[in-house]
Design a protein around this nucleic acid. Structure first.
Ligand SMILES: [Zn+2]
Length: 285
DNA sequence: CGTCGGTCCTGTCGGC
DNA sequence: TGCCGACAGGACCGAC
């Protein structure tokens, strides 16, 4: 799934187009992806206007004008695709084909706005979801997330406290959204490579210096990735430039067996916490 | 508290 | 050609 940089890119793009649009119609093709009762979901959103679009971790939050909030999680293969006669943009997982801004076989929830533009929630593997919550539930949800790179709450003292008190491997820690928000499998590997720390190191054995490097590389990698509009995995770049280019900057993710860009050593691929993990045994200790 | 495997799904790829 | 397992950007759950 899209991780923080991809989700942030989607948020920024959608914000340009959806603010002040009123939802005219909602078509639910696959009810399983809606985590409310269908009628409650429809009633909360129909004829309501998008006031703002926010994000916490990998969760997108559409604030509506009735004090309800539409939470959208894309998980592994979710996309939010906006389509109007003037503008098309896609965000999330790439389908591999030419960008298709029209409805497809994975379009499971379709919003039509008052100007007849559309928002498609597509999801091949159907792990993603949409859920409408009220203000109290929103606060609860946001509070369940940990500190997030580039945000005010991301302070080195706090990160140190988290890392020093856990006996789990550092990659697992970075992937735990309740501890650190927004990092997924790609950026965890990239951050740890930049920090020079092996992903299987037990957190509470890290030195202050190593924690500092993880802190700094988290901010740097996430910032660079957002600037590059994230990482997408097909070669195709559409005319509107909507594909993330961070894939060109990947140092380890997806490069198991290839040469380390820093030291030419062969990159090691292991399975850690059930996830594919790549690191350099020379550059990372 | 921590690890491990299974689970929700669909699709692709490589080996035999 | 077909079949089968492994794997894929996430997160949750229960057993131990
Ligand atoms: Zn190296």
């Amino acid at each position: 799934m899209p991780e923080l940089p991809e989700v942030e890119t989607i948020r920024q793009d959608l914000k340009k187009y959806l603010i002040s649009k009123k939802i005219k119609n909602i078509e639910i093709v696959l009810e399983r992806l809606v985590k409310n009762k269908k009628n409650e979901f429809l009633k909360s959103l129909k004829n309501k206007t998008v006031k703002d679009i926010r994000r916490v971790g990998k969760l997108i939050i559409l604030e509506m004008d009735n004090a309800k909030y539409l939470l959208v999680h894309l998980k592994m293969t979710g996309q939010l695709v906006y389509s109007s006669k003037k503008t098309n943009l896609a965000g999330g997982h790439s389908t591999g084909d030419n960008p298709e801004f029209e409805r497809n076989k994975y379009s499971y929830i379709i919003f039509t706005f008052d100007d007849d533009s559309k928002l498609y929630f597509n999801d091949m593997r159907t792990f993603g979801y949409m859920k409408v919550v009220n203000g109290g539930e929103l606060v609860e949800t946001i509070e369940s997330y940990g500190i997030e790179p580039l945000q005010k709450n991301f302070r080195i003292e706090k990160l140190k406290e988290i890392i020093k008190s856990r006996k789990i491997n550092i990659k697992n820690l970075l992937l735990n959204q309740k501890l650190v928000a927004g990092i997924g499998n790609i950026y965890a590997d990239e951050i740890l490579f930049r920090a020079g720390v092996r992903p299987d190191r037990i957190a509470n054995t890290l030195s202050d210096e190593e924690i500092k490097k993880i802190f700094n590389s988290s901010n740097t990698i996430i910032k660079k990735a957002i600037k590059a509009r994230g990482t997408t995995f097909n070669n195709y770049v559409d005319a509107r430039g909507k594909k993330g280019s961070f894939v060109k900057l990947l140092q380890v993710y997806g490069r198991g067996g290839e040469q380390c860009n820093k030291c030419k050593n062969k990159l090691t691929k292991i399975k850690l916490n059930g996830r594919g993990t790549v690191y350099c045994s020379q550059c990372q200790k």
